[in-house]
């Protein structure tokens, strides 16, 4: 019995079952294939965690470097950069953070970013999910064409249309505003497609039942579909947050000064005139990254579940 369970993918459940039936037999432990005890288990766990930790170092060391650098004076960042000292906060102070606020107007840029991103995420969820639902469920003239259009438009990168779009925005005098950074990004073909493929997977019976009860399309959408579709909303919300929080090119083109500029532009301030203030850059970068990291930690479960149930298809 023990050997059969050896590589079982759900050892916890089995162990509980064995414990409950008094079936756990230490004598059957061959020290290698039984996952939860013995010397083999120890070495295997050690190997496993060593691998996991090595990879964690690979992924996290630039972040660690950034956070520690944020507390160091500029000259120390440079002096310590090439050795282990880069990861020890020598001469720690909060000066860089103060600089980020005073010189790069971190507060202002942060609020701008929050405002722009919130509008894009919330507005985008409404616009894109409605379109995805119509494409998945309703029969109307031009549906096939729209679907084809959505898939094709998903290919076009923003840089490719930035020039004519900039002209258009200048023509209607939208430059240096919040709306020029929000409205063009609300509808997103990729997100429409994600919603579309999720809605395709919802059983029709639920809507039929609601319809028999006399519900109209709007009621059915808001009362029946949206609650089921929470995972895909979570996924799209996070993706669209990441995309708009990091937008780099467009704000350079359409904004002057810090009044309506988002965070991604702030770092440039410290790089314009030499010497480059690496400490300040690190502080700014840290304050830009940590809020998202915390947000992700909080919503991690929803995100993984969301991706799992979005039914991502090729």
């Amino acid at each position: 019995m023990a050997t059969l369970q050896a590589h079982n993918p759900a050892p916890d459940a089995l162990r509980q079952r064995d414990a409950a039936s008094g079936n756990a037999d230490p004598a059957a432990d061959d020290g290698w294939s039984t996952p939860h005890s013995g010397r083999g288990f120890f070495w295997r766990s050690l190997r496993r965690y060593a691998l996991l930790a090595l990879l964690a170092v690979f992924f996290a060391f630039p972040l660690l470097f950034m956070v520690i650098g944020a507390f160091k004076p500029d000259d120390r960042v440079l002096a310590d950069g090439a050795s282990w000292k880069a990861f020890v906060p020598f001469g720690a102070s909060l000066d860089n953070f103060a600089d980020a606020f005073s010189r790069a107007e971190f507060g202002r840029l942060f609020l701008n970013s929050v405002l722009i991103t919130t509008c894009i995420v919330l507005g985008g969820l409404v616009v894109n999910s409605l379109a995805g639902y119509a494409l998945a469920r309703m029969r109307f003239r031009g549906r096939k064409f729209l679907l084809g259009m959505v898939v094709t438009l998903a290919i076009i990168p923003f840089q490719a249309i930035a020039i004519p779009l900039l002209f258009m925005m200048a023509r209607i005098e939208w430059l240096d505003t919040y709306r020029v950074q929000i409205i063009p990004f609300l509808a997103n073909p990729f997100f429409i497609y994600l919603f579309y493929s999720f809605f395709l997977g919802i059983p029709r019976e639920l809507e039929e039942a609601a319809r028999v009860d006399g519900a109209g399309p709007v009621t059915i959408f808001t009362r029946v579909i949206v609650p089921i579709a929470r995972p895909v909303y979570a996924t799209v919300a996070i993706l669209s947050f990441l995309f708009s929080w990091g937008e780099l090119l467009w704000p350079v083109l359409v904004t002057r000064g810090s009044t309506v500029r988002p965070l991604s532009q702030g770092i440039a301030v410290f790089q314009t005139q030499p010497p480059i203030q690496w400490g300040d850059i690190m502080a700014f970068a840290t304050m830009t990254t940590l809020p998202i990291l915390i947000l992700f930690l909080v919503f991690q479960r929803a995100f993984v579940q969301g991706v799992s149930r979005t039914g991502l298809k090729g």
Binding site: A131, F140, R143, L146, M149, I161, L165, P184, A187, P217
Partner: peptide, 22 residues
């Protein structure tokens, strides 16, 4: 068909103005 266009309308207008036209 009306509902279909109403639902997809905002996205279609935005996609047209900000991706197709440019």
């Amino acid at each position: 068909r009306t509902v279909g266009w109403l639902f997809s309308g905002p996205a279609v207008v935005l996609l047209t103005l900000f991706i197709v036209v440019p």
